[in-house]
Simulated assay, not measured.
Amino acid sequence: MTHIFSQESQLNTEAQRTLWQQVRHQRLTTADGITLAYGRIDHPSPKGTIVISNGRVESYLKYHELIFDLYQAGYQIFAIDHRGQGLSSRTTHNHHQGHIDNFDLYIDDFSHFIDEVVLPNAQGQLYLVGHSMGGCIGSLYMQSKPSTFKAAVFSAPMLGIRLPINRGFIRWLANLLDSQRRQQPPNYILGGKDYSPHPFKGNDLTYSQARYEDYLHIYRDEPQLQLGSPTNRWLVEAIDASEQAIFAARDTQVPKLILQASEDSIVDNQAQNRARSQHCQVVPIADARHEIFMEKDTPRNAALTQLLQFIEQHP
């Protein structure tokens, strides 16, 4: 089936705004008192249900265009904001810090969301779409619960982080500087700072100026979404979890597709290649930076076509 996707020259169309009014914005509380925000949109005749696991600093509000396209393709959709970001509870005194005490908390939250919200309401087979950190979370979740999802598609998954120097040294330094080891509040990585919007020129995320500026407008209009640099603890936890996620993606017997951004400078494409196996395909997306789903139309359409063809192969 040929799908028609939205265009960067026509963002926030009347059809998209009308559909967005049907999204239910809801919340779920975890055992440790964290409030997780999520969006849900049901479909009158769904082919199945897609769960979106987003990346660091993201919110499901940023995914309005992707949700529109996946809905038009025939899917019911659930999308969660991970703890410490988006519309979910912050876990630090400084709400701009991207922080996690233990990466397993992301997995536990996601599992709670699936059990309490998604499974009781899903229609048809379940599919996972994870971007960046959300792909890492999804890989580790499926390692522990391989029967939940029929298939998964990961966009530029965080199976390794692009670092300026040796990974082992960066981890050692971040662990050394982690103020929580001294029973103090979390602290930023070296050079880390609160949120500040970056102009399109020189950005590492996308070649699409229209989609990039749309993303900035969302974060300007919803200041509670704004998130700055990660903390030292987040970096240590993320480095360790990324390495574990390589083996989870490679070995877990759930069909997986990695959409690899050919010009990614945020995550490590070589780490993604290490996950390649009979259970995990890797497809490069040409002319794409890290944010494949907010790229220019040609790479974005190629990625969405691959995504939909892959999950339609696993009905």
Score class of each variant (00 low, 15 high):
124 G>I: 04
121 N>I: 06
70 L>R: 02
93 H>A: 14
115 D>R: 11
130 G>M: 06
114 I>H: 06
102 N>R: 01
76 Q>G: 08
122 A>V: 14
91 T>Y: 00
99 H>T: 01
117 V>Y: 13
79 A>Q: 03
83 R>H: 02
110 F>L: 15
80 I>M: 15
104 D>Y: 12
53 S>M: 06
93 H>G: 09
54 N>F: 03
95 H>L: 05
70 L>K: 04
77 I>T: 15
128 L>I: 11
100 I>P: 00
41 I>A: 09
73 A>M: 07
72 Q>L: 01
71 Y>T: 09
118 V>T: 15
115 D>I: 07
73 A>R: 08
63 Y>K: 01
95 H>K: 06
65 E>G: 00
69 D>A: 05
79 A>S: 07
112 H>S: 10
67 I>D: 05
70 L>Y: 05
47 K>V: 08
41 I>T: 13
124 G>P: 10
77 I>R: 14
87 L>W: 13
115 D>K: 13
50 I>D: 14
43 H>D: 07
52 I>P: 07
122 A>M: 14
122 A>L: 13
119 L>D: 02
132 S>H: 03
64 H>L: 00
116 E>C: 09
116 E>D: 11
105 L>Y: 00
76 Q>F: 03
93 H>W: 06
74 G>V: 02
101 D>F: 00
92 T>P: 03
93 H>V: 11
121 N>C: 06
118 V>E: 13
49 T>C: 04
112 H>A: 06
118 V>N: 12
76 Q>H: 05
93 H>F: 10
83 R>I: 00
120 P>E: 15
115 D>M: 08
120 P>C: 15
44 P>F: 01
127 Y>A: 10
59 S>H: 05
99 H>L: 02
45 S>L: 06
56 R>Y: 01
95 H>S: 06
108 D>H: 07
47 K>Y: 07
60 Y>L: 02
126 L>P: 04
53 S>I: 07
129 V>P: 04
52 I>E: 11
98 G>R: 06
130 G>C: 03
120 P>G: 15
44 P>Q: 05
105 L>N: 00
65 E>L: 00
40 R>I: 08
78 F>L: 13
47 K>N: 10
85 Q>Y: 08
60 Y>C: 03
76 Q>K: 11
62 K>T: 04
